[in-house]
Design a protein around this nucleic acid. Sequence first.
RNA 1: GUGGGCGUAGCUCAGCAGGUUAGAGCACCUGGUUGUGGCCCAGGAGGUCGUGGGUUCAAGUCCCAUCGCUCACCCCA
Length: 425
Amino acid sequence: MGDRVNRVRGVRDILPEETHLWRFVEWIVHAVMSTYGYQEIRTPVFELTELFERGIGLETDIVNKEMYTFTDKGGKSLTLRPELTAPVIRAYIQNHLDRDTPITRLYYMDSLYRQERPQKGRLRQFSQFGVEAIGSPHAEQDVEVIALAYDLCSLFESQGLSVRLNTIGSPEVRGDYLQRLRKAFEPYAGELGELDQQRVKNNPLRLFDSKNPETQALLDQHAPLISDYISDEDRLHFEEVMAGLEALGIPFEHDAKLVRGLDYYTRTTFEVTSEQLGAQDALCGGGRYDGLVAQLGGPDTPAVGFAAGLERLLLVAEDRLKEKLSPRQLDVYLVVLTDEARIPALSCAQQLRTAGYTVVLETLRRSARSQLREANRSGARAAVILGEEEVKKEICTVKRMDTGEQVEVPLTQLADRFDDIFPKD
RNA sequence: GUGGGCGUAGCUCAGCAGGUUAGAGCACCUGGUUGUGGCCCAGGAGGUCGUGGGUUCAAGUCCCAUCGCUCACCCCA
């Protein structure tokens, strides 16, 4: 085994013992999405690189250093999708979904790719589900999206969840605010870490993300608050969002420091975090992005959405889910003892499968003892045994694995008799 | 890209201050049962101690490098 090919860094295998958990979570997501009237959309894993440059923003880390970008044989620059909002909006525009109705509610659940250093809750291929509600500029749309996100998260993790909410206003006022924020920090540039100095220059909003306590102290003392700069309309919108959440009983905190890393957000931003997660604690994040559709060449259309990390959700829910869910139980292990029994055994298996039972048939030609051991290990409810005696008498022996008792059943009646021995739920 | 921790059997881990043939538990295989599982008993298979170099009479153990995993920074789901 000296020369194996191993998994690439930052990706995972989802093994048989956990795929059933994934299927369960996916099933819940589809179900909840449809109760909110959202429809699923699937887009290609790769897109023109330009889509992400224009959609996510050239200043972001995602575009700057995390994209898997390659050139195809036609010389086009393509990129494995690092997020799904831009592709979904692209599909919305390209397929003229705006023509059917002025409001479109879409959801997705797919894998994404970012070349980051992996750590707990962060992988290079990971899965997100999320929504884009395209068309409404009003607060109740924000509330609907946040409620949907919160509902889904709390279905899997009831403790340790918190919703953080903020508004970053409209782009028109934000320019002014950023200028003032930058100015406020210029006198203290020398006291900041290298990284935070970069932030002052390139993207002062990100200063709020800093984990440096000194930076945070300076922010508390000197930073102007964005809430003092937003327009009356922005403020009214934010108040309506908060009122809606309160009415729904969704607990949230207004976190004036919550800024998000993507350039396209306007007004509302929010996150749902779990205290179980360590450094990467956001289960889901989202907000409003009223300018994105137009920026990608579509009609000027407001939109709001969120994205949630499936791996992170599973990380917090996995233990409880494992208690509740078990993989599909095997009904029958078909034990084959002689050469003559092989053909009859194949038809036995088919007969039972047609009747809806899960059946595995011995293909290793092992000893009776080994086969029974295998039947036991497999968790099958019964072993159906075919050997010399049975073939001669055109019967099979059905052995219950729980009690060990055995009965002989005519081959022609196997499926019917099985219903009696093991009634289906 | 930067820093910390960790790499011994399929898995979880022992291996005392460098000293003979590298261990345990679980899992796996065979037998105790000419066709009967779980429990038990007996036996078996499985390791270039991540890799390369160095120090030494002697390296799983010490040193250096390298690779991998992991957590954190950055950023985000």
